[in-house]
């Protein structure tokens, strides 16, 4: 009887495998194979004009890139732009998430505000970039005119996309504009999930609101902060549309470096644009460096915030496990 039951289960198991199969077939063809192909190309001298079969092995792209000032600058740019938008984004999101979940505040319209704050996130990034570029455009952009009238830009001939820091700050602002609503919603949901009895206990013990924020809210939110940090980092390091469409990675700086060329824009320039031969090998090597940077920073983030996150994940996994067994 028991044996028979086991056999039946195994028969059903094969359906599980069949059901997940399409995902993995497509994944293998369109995701894993391109990744492996890129890695292989990064070790060749393959360029657009040659047949891929004629490409030969070389490691020189990797060594060329680490001393290439334009590539190094693109890494620096990526981090500058990410930092200028991520830090204020998290601060603002935390503040407003706390506000929207606060029990004491009787402010109206929180639901509408949430909807409005998330709106920029769904708007096509390419359109957003072109929109901001034209609003800040000198001399016809409306925000440009407004800022000059208000004295934000003191020089009447100031052109934001000719100024390295001006363009960086503009791009960072657009990233902030697009993502703070998303981060806010995620943090607010996590705060709602905290058991209110913790706060009640803290109040009874005489803890102030600020104190309970730092000793209850923050520690319990660590996993979600980690999640936000990693997704924002992985996303931020891949930033492409906004810097590419705002100023094509420019303006130029001394020594052939570009002020807002991110790693992704650099890869795209090398592979497809800019009067160069299509240097697929160099672009692939740059994408491998990008991957390594993402790996290192994800690892550091996990190390730094990790213990709590892992602790919680373990706790979450256990009930799932028993449930799976039950469901077989």
């Amino acid at each position: 009887m028991a044996l028979f039951a086991k056999k039946r289960k195994l028969n059903y198991g094969i359906y599980g495998f069949i059901f997940v199969l399409p995902f993995f077939v497509v994944f293998l063809i369109f995701q894993l194979y391109p990744i492996l192909y890129s890695i292989i190309l990064s070790f060749t001298n393959y360029q657009g004009f040659m047949d891929v079969k004629d490409a030969t092995f070389t490691f020189s792209q990797y060594t060329d890139l680490i001393v290439n000032p334009r590539f190094l600058q693109s890494i620096v740019n990526t981090f500058i732009i990410w930092m200028i938008n991520f830090v204020p984004q998290v601060v603002v999101s935390f503040l407003f998430a706390a506000l929207f979940t606060s029990v004491n505040l009787k402010m109206k319209g929180a639901g509408v505000f949430k909807i409005v704050y998330y709106l920029p996130n769904i708007v096509t990034a390419a359109s957003v970039a072109v929109l901001f570029k034209n609003l800040f455009n000198y001399p016809d952009g409306i925000i440009d005119k407004l800022f000059k009238a208000m004295g934000v830009f003191s020089d009447p001939t100031y052109n934001i996309v000719r100024d390295a820091w001006g363009t960086r700050i503009l791009i960072s602002f657009i990233q902030f504009w697009r993502y703070f609503g998303y981060t806010l919603l995620i943090l607010a949901a996590a705060m709602m999930g905290i058991n209110p009895t913790y706060y009640e206990a803290a109040t009874i013990d005489g803890a102030s609101k600020v104190k309970s924020f730092f000793s209850i809210t923050l520690p319990l939110l660590r996993p979600i902060v980690l999640y936000t940090l990693i997704t924002s980092l992985v996303g931020g390091l891949q930033m492409f549309e906004i810097p590419y469409l705002i100023c094509d990675g420019g303006p130029m700086m001394a020594g052939g470096r570009w002020a807002t060329e991110t790693i992704s824009v650099y890869i795209y320039h090398m592979a497809f644009e800019g009067g160069y031969t299509n240097d697929y090998a160099l672009a692939s090597a740059a994408s491998v460096y990008l991957f390594l940077i993402v790996l290192v920073f994800s690892f550091i983030t996990f190390k730094f915030f990790g213990d709590q996150a892992f602790g919680l994940e373990k706790k979450e996994k256990q009930p799932k496990k028993s449930k799976e067994k039950e469901d077989v």
Binding site: Q31, Y37, I230, V234, I267, S287
Partner: peptide, 11 residues
């Protein structure tokens, strides 16, 4: 966790 750009050229 894998950045999409890693497979860009290969894709």
């Amino acid at each position: 966790l894998i950045p999409g750009q890693l497979g860009m050229i290969g894709w």
